[in-house]
Write a protein that binds this DNA or RNA. Structure first.
Lengths: 138, 138
DNA sequence: CGGGATCCGAGACGATACTG
DNA sequence: CAGTATCGTCTCGGATCCCG
């Protein structure tokens, strides 16, 4: 019952076909997927692979601070969603290469744009934080 | 010690000035801010405000599934980072209006682009998930 | 109406150890 | 090298109550 009120969200023409996904509806399948790519490690994992395929430990080194557990867990979710491809090379020792799929490239591209934007805005953010924290000492 | 190895990340011309923020470095101040805006409720909160200022409960209704606690917590973090502005109207009962700052608009814009992209790609994502889950039944 | 405070369970997360 | 398993911690996040 609560899904239909989420579907309408001021979209009068909707209702004929159900292929309108809406992340604002909590029952929409796009919700978990959004959380995979915007999650704590999802963003950085996709961002790390944006510049080219990497092996597991290379990726772990690039995404500073991630544990093997979280990295492998994040990669599995992203692979399941079709953003990342796993290629196992039967060498000794075995190498595993992770690369973005075309769909993953599209998403990672947007994410890198967001990251670039954020990094450029960080001075203003730090300034805002200082003002916010300082207001209590008035 | 571990910050400098994160700073270099294949950027040979960097090093003259330190105003290059890098979310891939776990000690960079941009990390927590990135998590605020890409967090579970951060994305949807910014997205909800992208179409215009909203009151607390209006926003809570739009971001389906969020609790008051998490919404207010998320809004505080976003306000501290300077993405959201709070305006208290001294009416009875009191109304509180949340609106995006110019900086917040820039970020929310990128996020909405990502969301639109994701929603458009969802059919492919669902297909990939089905393939991934079905492979175990081979 | 717009929150803050508190309690509490569930899950995220990290460190370590182990396997192929 | 590339993970998985186990464990302990700790935060997230929801429910509830309460206040202005």
């Amino acid at each position: 019952m609560e899904t239909e009120q989420a579907q309408r969200r001021s979209r009068p023409d909707a209702g004929s076909s159900e292929d309108h996904f809406d992340v604002f509806a909590c029952a929409c399948p796009s919700r978990p997927t959004l959380e995979h790519i915007t999650g704590r490690w999802g963003v950085l994992t996709l961002g790390g692979l944006a510049q080219g395929p990497l092996r597991f430990n290379e990726l772990a080194r690039r995404v500073d601070g991630v544990s093997q557990k979280m990295l492998s867990q994040t990669l599995q979710a992203l692979e399941r969603d079709g953003f990342v491809e796993r290629e196992v090379l039967a060498t000794l020792p075995p190498h595993v290469v992770y690369r973005l799929t075309p769909v993953g490239v599209a998403v990672a591209d947007k994410l890198m744009g967001l990251i670039a934007d954020l990094e450029a805005l960080m001075p203003q953010v730090l300034d805002a934080q200082a003002r916010y924290d300082g207001r209590e000492a008035d």
